[in-house]
Design a binder for these strands. Structure first.
Lengths: 165, 165
DNA sequence: CATGTTTTCTTGACTTATTCCAGATAACTG
DNA sequence: CAGTTATCTGGAATAAGTCAAGAAAACATG
């Protein structure tokens, strides 16, 4: 959790001007991590009613470049953003509902950075997405009528389920 | 390396009709792995001059569903395809030129399938992309005038370099 | 090999996500 | 407070991919 003051400090530290648009975008992404641009835009407009979509795109991209946001893009989804940066965590995505949750790195610190053979590449990041079914989707389809819980993982908010074709 | 006969067999095994469009798409992807739809379309048209773009999209998606192709989509790039499937290998992508090469899995067989905490998800795939600089791009920018080799990894063919902003 | 059924392909319009551009506006500097 | 420069607005443009209807090609059958 961050505060607006935090964000202001972060912006200045990054050499970016402090605008209400950027503050609001940061706050929005912080409150609903793994959001795509469209839902961020919607949410931001609840505060800043007449912000342009371009300003949101610009903010997301500037903030991502500055390292205040992290951007990732699962197959078939639009780009998603989160404020949790620099800790090399990964993502777990549901093929059915598109819901995404964070998972810490399987190994320790910055680990997966080392493939068996780096072929001369200078590697600076390992991006990992685990694909599968989230608890609610898997109970729904599996004929195993066991756990009937509707886990809190899926806020069922936006994510358009991607038909796999 | 595959042969056209292989592909015909694979198509039949998958219960798909054997068409020259599909055979050509398979052959094309096999010859130039990690290609995007646009360059596949171009290449296919060198053989099948008047194939529609839709037929290529359909073929790619049907073949991917059937498991004859694998699809992945690095940040900022269009979807890429390859014929190497089912071996859980990963990718190494250059941030500068966009070139992509294969890397075998860091751990052994289907390993990375297990994050520390699966949060109730049923995981079926771990998609890993290593990001960095390919040999040619890193020598060009680094002030380390050491290795002057222009490694064979980058065929410098299509991949539009993604401006990071 | 002739025919029927079903899948696949062609054509062409459409949607969605994102970017480009030019002028207006708001942040920081002094 | 004024000047400079970054940022934002508004609107058009582009790229990747999808939808839909009819034509054509595959496969099964007689």
């Amino acid at each position: 959790m961050h505060t607006m003051v935090d964000f202001e400090t972060q912006l200045r530290a990054a050499g970016l001007r402090v605008t209400k648009q950027r503050l609001t975008v940061l706050d929005t992404v912080d409150r609903q991590p793994h959001s795509d641009t469209a839902s961020i835009l919607d949410a931001v407009r609840r505060t800043l009613t007449s912000i342009s979509h371009q300003a949101v795109y610009d903010a997301l991209s500037d903030l991502t470049d500055a390292g205040l946001l992290r951007k990732f893009q699962p197959q078939g989804s639009a780009a998603l953003y989160e404020t949790r940066t620099g800790d090399n965590h990964h993502h777990l995505a549901c093929r059915d509902c598109g819901n995404v949750v964070d998972v810490d790195c399987t190994l320790q610190e910055m680990p997966c950075l080392t493939p068996l053979d780096d072929q001369g590449y200078l590697i600076d990041e390992a991006e990992v997405i685990y694909w599968g079914s989230c608890p609610s989707c898997s109970t729904r389809s599996q004929p195993t009528p066991d756990q009937d819980n509707q886990q809190g993982t899926s806020r069922g908010e936006r994510h358009v389920p991607r038909s796999n074709r």
